[in-house]
Design a protein around this nucleic acid. Sequence first.
DNA 1: TAAAAAATTTAGACTTGTCTAAAAAATTAT
DNA 2: ATAATTTTTTAGACAAGTCTAAATTTTTTA
Lengths: 216, 216
Amino acid sequence: MNTLAEENYLKSIYHLSLNDSNVSTNQIAAALNTKAASVTDMLKKLADKELINYAKYQGVTLTSAGEKVALHIIRKHRLWEYFLVEKLHFKWDEVHDMAEEMEHISSVELTDRLDKFMDYPKHDPHGDPIPDRDGKFKKNELQPITALQVNESGIISGVRDHSALFLQYLEKQQLTIGKKIKVTEIIEYDQSMILEVEQTKIHISREAAKNLLIVI
Amino acid sequence: MNTLAEENYLKSIYHLSLNDSNVSTNQIAAALNTKAASVTDMLKKLADKELINYAKYQGVTLTSAGEKVALHIIRKHRLWEYFLVEKLHFKWDEVHDMAEEMEHISSVELTDRLDKFMDYPKHDPHGDPIPDRDGKFKKNELQPITALQVNESGIISGVRDHSALFLQYLEKQQLTIGKKIKVTEIIEYDQSMILEVEQTKIHISREAAKNLLIVI
DNA sequence: TAAAAAATTTAGACTTGTCTAAAAAATTAT
DNA sequence: ATAATTTTTTAGACAAGTCTAAATTTTTTA
């Protein structure tokens, strides 16, 4: 099997791949809070195990074996987050670090039974889709609310920023998953938005708006 | 915090301390499937951290700080075992290895909420007591059934051997936790015992009997 | 397109936890 | 009580994963 460090590298590479097809050494170093030299060492190891495609100076992509490992870790992460929120009643901003540990529990049987225990949830508490045991999941058709014009509506369905700070801010503003929002005004000066949520008006910056995802 | 290896050493030392007040290097090496030289190295490290009392060649005992750590790991192990059996419907012989991983999940808050979620179980699926958050628990007043005379009865409440092999054997013989048993005969030749469990007679070796624990 | 800047890799070192082989201490047996 | 045996520790080495500093490659910019 793979070490804890290897698993964390694969997971980071997967996440970074969603934005850039070739992931650079420095991006990985930043994501994992480590140094580029350490990343290079690990990339060689992962390439030897045929979990990534790596050519010096050219960045990396996951092989299908590597993607499979990454998706299984992400599956576990999201299932445990769901468990922590739905069964143990943690708040959505409290579960990330715990799930970072729990995602490394290895038993596949345990993961599948946990999935069944919770009745096969499709999304974690932040709206991210939970891969099934084969790593398959529907790609989210989510857009940032900055895609909306005045008077258009959507349903809050995810976030781009998973930091506790942002999640707590959203919670305080009642901007939680499932809520219906309507854009009532876009301030020309700074592109900040005024939203209507359950009859109340909420003013959010463009910065925040970019990180709040909806389905239309 | 403590590393995974340190936690495993403390846990082993705790368990071994129940039989011998001073635990030897070789005992620990056997329990952890490692070499005596490795144990000596780790003992120095744990002594530096004041988690054990260690004097060369004299064996070790846990300090109260070390015992606290050990009991917290044991608490987590037993709570997760209970979860796996009661919520995910694993069998009692399947959960040990999974719990070995899960016992290292660090969050105290998570542990306490898990405890609450399951309504504060007092014993794990093998009858071992679950320490509370302060590490306190009632010492089991359990005896091996070899302590019984002919015609005496007891209730199966624990096991001394936690191996899957022994647990599966017990399961097959209907010798599970909570069952009432009565000794109907002790064979003089080999000290094996004939038990009555729910109107059926079961013949078990003295070897097995020593590992099956009851309350009277 | 050549120089400067940025990104990446290499070289060499450190820590943790492990190992084997040899030395030292403790125990046991004669 | 001394020799033989067993247990434990020390010495030196190794793998994993990380680091800093220096070298190399790629990219940017003038």
